[in-house]
Amino acid sequence: MSPSWTALLPILMLIGSNVFMTFAWYGHLKVEKGPLWIIVLASWGIAFFEYWLAVPANRIGHAVYSAAELKTMQEVITLAVFAVFSVTYLGERLTANHVIGFAFIALGAAFVFKGPL
């Protein structure tokens, strides 16, 4: 695998895994009826596919990124995926407070990738 592909593939896989996990954790909020045990089993079923992307993404990505960088990437991707999900699927508003809070988290992420100070 080429070095650029080794750097890009984990990011794409983490985006995909976060889409699955966001649906597993929050997709059921649109389901108003049904036993909780069925909702939990359905969420586990969705999360199964998240793991099939996240675990290989981290193993492949560790050839290029540190564990801290991979975790930081995952958190920023999670927020971005969740922001889109909450607006498009749940119909919630993204407020200025959300954007400012996410920006502070992204600023913190930038320090992880900056290297030693």
Rank of each mutant, 00 (worst) to 15 (best):
G16N: 09
R59T: 15
L94G: 12
G34K: 13
A109W: 01
W44P: 08
G45A: 09
A42L: 14
I46S: 06
N18Y: 00
I38R: 15
G45K: 07
V31N: 06
H62C: 07
V76Q: 01
A47T: 07
V87H: 10
K33F: 10
T78K: 13
W37N: 15
V76A: 03
V19P: 07
P3M: 06
L29G: 10
V112M: 03
K30Y: 05
S17K: 04
W37L: 14
L9G: 05
V19N: 10
V64M: 06
A83H: 02
L94H: 06
W52Y: 11
A83G: 08
G27D: 04
W5D: 00
M13D: 07
Y51L: 00
L70W: 14
V19F: 15
Q74K: 05
W37Q: 15
A109M: 02
N58T: 02
I15H: 08
V64P: 01
V31K: 00
Y51K: 05
V55F: 15
A47Q: 12
M13V: 08
I60M: 12
V64G: 00
Y65D: 09
G115H: 02
Y26N: 06
S4K: 14
P3S: 00
F111Q: 01
P116I: 00
L94S: 11
V99Q: 01
A54F: 14
I77Y: 06
T95K: 01
F20S: 00
L12W: 13
E75W: 10
N18R: 07
S2G: 01
I15Q: 09
F20P: 05
V55M: 11
L41R: 07
L70Q: 08
K33Y: 13
V31M: 09
A68C: 03
I60W: 06
R93W: 15
K71T: 07
E92Y: 13
A96F: 03
N97K: 09
F49E: 03
F111N: 02
K30G: 09
V84W: 11
G101R: 01
A54P: 03
R93A: 15
L36I: 00
I77C: 00
T78H: 11
T88Q: 08
E32M: 11
I39T: 14
Y89E: 05
N18S: 11
G108S: 03
A109V: 02
E50G: 12
A83Y: 02
V19Y: 01
M73Q: 08
A57E: 10
A109R: 02
M73V: 05
F102S: 03
I11S: 10
S17W: 02
A110K: 07
I15T: 10
W37P: 06
S66R: 04
A42E: 14
I46P: 01
Y26C: 05
V112I: 11
H62R: 12
I105D: 01
L8P: 13
T22R: 08
Y89S: 01
L9A: 13
S4L: 14
L14K: 04
P35A: 12
S4V: 15
G108A: 03
A103H: 02
G16T: 15
V64W: 11
I11G: 07
L117P: 13
R93M: 15
L117W: 07
S66T: 15
H28Q: 00
F23Q: 06
T78M: 11
G115K: 05
M21I: 00
F102I: 02
A57C: 10
P10W: 03
E69F: 11
G16D: 06
V99S: 02
A67M: 15
L29V: 10
G115M: 05
H28C: 00
W52R: 10
